[in-house]
Design a protein around this nucleic acid. Sequence first.
RNA 1: CGGGACGUGGCGCAGGCUGGUAGCGCACCUGCUUUGGGAGCAGGGGGUCGCCGGUUCAAAUCCGGCCGUCCCGACCA
Length: 573
Amino acid sequence: MPAAPLGGSWRLSGRLWPTLRDPPADAEAVSHVLMVRAGLVRQLAAGLYTVLPMGLRVLRRVEAIVRQEMEAIGAQEIVMPLLHPAEIWEATGRYPLDEQFRLEDRGGRAMVLGMTHEEIITWHAAREIQSYRDLPQSWWQMHTKLRDEPRPKSGMLRVREFVMKDSYSLDRDEAGLERSYAAHSEAYARIFDRCGIAWHLVESDVGMMGGLGAHEFMAPSPAGEDVIARCPACDYAANVELATSVPIEPDFGATPAEPEPFDTPGIGTIAELSAFTDLPPARHAKSVVVVTDGGPVLALVRGEHQVHDTKLAREVGPHRPAHEEEIRGWFGADPGSLGPVGLDGVRVVADHSLAIGHYVTGANRDGVHLRGVVLGRDFAAATADLREVLPGEACAGCGTPLVLEPVIEIGNIFKLGTRYSAALGAGYLDADGHEQDIIMGSYGIGPARVAAAAIEQGHDEAGIIWPRAIAPFDVHLVLIGAPGSEAAGYADRLYDELSERGLEVLYDDRVHTKPGEKFVEAELLGCPLRVTVGKRTLPHGPLEVQVRRGREQREIALGAAANALRELWSSQA
RNA sequence: CGGGACGUGGCGCAGGCUGGUAGCGCACCUGCUUUGGGAGCAGGGGGUCGCCGGUUCAAAUCCGGCCGUCCCGACCA
């Protein structure tokens, strides 16, 4: 049987299916171009898309797979409002988030459009869950989220309004959370496998969700906004926001007894400095100045590394880059000659890698640097993981060089713990009669992103190549011949026979469309099999079949053609 | 939010410097021909040139402001 039969078969004539010959001017991402050209979606405004009938079929198939796998782990489907009273969000401190759409009702009551539903789920849990006997629970919905994104982009990959499958687990204790978390993780793995998408499970930052830990499901694609570091040998994989590695150590030579100043006229960047000193970038320490609520912070990484903002934020909290005037005031020098030695009133945080070796740093005097600077001896600093992993650095687990690759985030899972239940009073009485906070988890999938990722991973110059499970149709049947012709009669019968065998068929029975146009549009849409029925091969056959992936031509005998097509369909990815 | 680009029939674009009654391709309508890879010929319909203001006898074109969309950097299904 088809993976997710849903919409039934269609005759194409009279349907809304507007395809475009040219790529839209404002589309860049492959999935964006193809979704618009193939008549799946139309843009209303930045980050807002209308899903057309053909696109909706794809989403429905993804959703059906998600729904089956949610049912399979015992999660229960509900639907929550999109419009929320603001005070629920105030209770968890997330009301001021920039992504929140805010509005008032006619009575002046502050409301928000839901960007996610942790608060609402927890609010209900606080009322419906009384006893440890009521736990565990998993509740989920397939519903719209609204986010005032700073920058919608790449078509359906980053939008302001989208449907999310979001589920929430409620448990008595952390062991229960671990079970719910694992159940969701395994369900997600099945979902993405069934959708025919290549993916990696990676460790991730908890971000705005907060909580105890998180993972993301990442689909490799050049169009991706995230980057993961992955070990080809063991199973280590993490978002670069979190990834660690063993850096490649330079040869430090002997450590000088004390820092030695030297003139570096006009030197500003690590590259210039490295050329000037004839030492590799790894022998230098890079100074990055940010401003936090608690004042200026100097972040130090080795010259070949970049400070990763999320990592720095975990250490020092929210921050912004310092202005040049501020830097002059604190350091007495311009950016380019900054360093940690002899600093007063500036907190210094160094990457772990600086604990070994001695380094060239700025001397906090314009045009002067120090060589032989040693952490702990010449300056004091906390060490932390601040740097972004570089490709080729060793996996901390097994030593194999890591690979970095761009990815699309298609799903995520969070161990929330008690952050929301504590804030909203969602507790239960345990077996001893003690009040406990519910331990929560939250789990999201964006079906439209799954579809977009499938296109990013499956396309050629002619158009989309859908994985069979989420293609809009299983078979694209192209009739070449007028109504009443022998070809039309045969195509009508084949349409019925294929449909009876559980295949969903798009029957291109349009009368005023040229054969060439039908072929081109079929390849643009990208269903797994295209069958052509025309007088060229009738009445004796064979049927011409094109396998979309690779555009390979096959011939199928007329007798038992429907069964043969079903077999061929079953063999597709 | 910082930086860049672009807004001209449904779609893709030209015109703009050098102001003078808006053009091309596709799509659409009618007719004939055509019917296996986005058909041919003929005829036809459709645009306050993003908006507001300014300069000018005259503005798609020059100037100013605003709005919108996309791309690059800081944020997330």
